[in-house]
Design a protein around this nucleic acid. Structure first.
Lengths: 218, 218
DNA sequence: GCTGCTATGTAAATACCATTTACATAGCAG
DNA sequence: CTGCTATGTAAATGGTATTTACATAGCAGC
């Protein structure tokens, strides 16, 4: 008998044993291949080797599975951003730029997560866990902004929250418009990372966070 | 007989008479209500009062209809941006900011178009008409950037293309993250328009396009 | 070890949707 | 009036989401 033996999918028999995880992994694969819109619950079930009704034992519906992928994506993004920030080393300015680069790198390297997080049309309102995960990603950016702002004398110190929102919006805009691998977007005269770095340099100069021009050319 | 009379949908009988337009209008309604992802070809056909196969006489498939809506959306956006730019009046700087505001206003006032244009996952590669329409929208921004840059002495003149890409990315990022009515996003301490205006002011200061601080507070 | 509860799967049914095909009708050119 | 072409319809195919009734495995307690 094949009971207690494992099939090619890691199945143990009638019961899968780890279907929830298997579905999430299948979702990542499928979203990476066909986009969040093209992802189907039935396909995920097929990938995991179970019937099309089995996933409903673990997720309320298709959106709940995508939301869980998105939640994990935000957790992963938080890790990546924190690692890039590296507690402000070697200096807050350099670390801040590393955070921006890490955002773009995430969008490029984890298209499945990114798609689930930002392109699946999820409502954050109905899912506190998802909202919290997203908040924590943003908190990294906000924390970094605060430390960077704190270096300035109080009278010329910009609001850190606003600064973090600008940074997030610019990073997200560049990632959405130019840094996706789907080929559906515009070709650029420069790499997205360069575009973001230049934009942030100009922005930080405008804030007075840094004094030197981006390319001292004189 | 009802031949040559018109039904409640404007039908004239067996033949609709203007099905293509009716489908596009139905698509706008439905996308506004349920998002680009929730929009169905069958629903559009129902709205127009025809069978579910009729739309195929006018659009290759569902995506082709959405792409046509998106194309019209870009044309509309081009108009709005051009009107906001107003040939650089009253001055290039003010006009440039008006262009940014017009972008956000478009995202807010025309969620159906915006959704079809940026959230439907369309491939621009396979549709030259769509790509061209998008290019023309961007061209307005680029043209405005060039005029604004031209005011600066050549040695401190930034690349206008880069400047327009930054502006587009920031506007799009803010619109995507904060300025959609879907309630799925973050609540802000300020209006999206203010956030964009502040961001652009800081950016333009960083470029040296303007010298004065945003809020002369001393 | 057996019993029964609960978790986890399956099969089948419902109700959509996209798309295709064969057929029907309207409009129009000659 | 005739026939061609454009534009509709009905029906069929195959896919998807979701629910329901049923089946089996795992496990706790006896």
């Amino acid at each position: 008998m094949s009971w207690s033996g494992r099939g090619p999918d890691g199945r143990r028999g009638y019961h899968h044993g780890n279907l929830r995880e298997a579905l999430i992994e299948a979702a990542l694969d499928l979203i990476a291949k066909k986009g969040a819109a093209g992802f189907t619950f039935a396909d995920a079930a097929r990938s995991a080797g179970v019937s099309s009704a089995a996933p409903y034992r673990h997720f309320r519906d298709r959106d709940a599975l995508i939301a869980d992928v998105a939640r994990r994506g935000f957790n992963l993004l938080t890790e990546r951003l924190e690692h890039a920030w590296s507690e402000g080393r070697p200096d807050p300015f350099t670390a801040f730029e590393n955070v921006g680069r890490a955002y773009l790198a995430f969008a490029r390297d984890e298209p499945a997560y990114y798609s689930a997080m930002f392109e699946a049309g999820l409502s954050f309102d109905g899912d506190p866990a998802l909202r919290q995960a997203a908040e924590r990603s943003f908190a990294v950016l906000r924390h970094a902004s605060e430390l960077l702002c704190a270096r300035l004398p109080p009278e010329k110190r910009p609001p850190a929250l606003m600064m973090s929102l600008h940074t997030w919006a610019l990073s997200h805009g560049i990632a959405s418009l130019f840094a996706r691998g789907d080929g559906g977007r515009r070709r650029l005269p420069m790499a997205p990372e360069e575009l973001l770095e230049a934009g942030m340099l100009i922005y930080l100069q405008g804030l007075g966070v840094i004094a030197e021009p981006a390319k001292p050319k004189e």
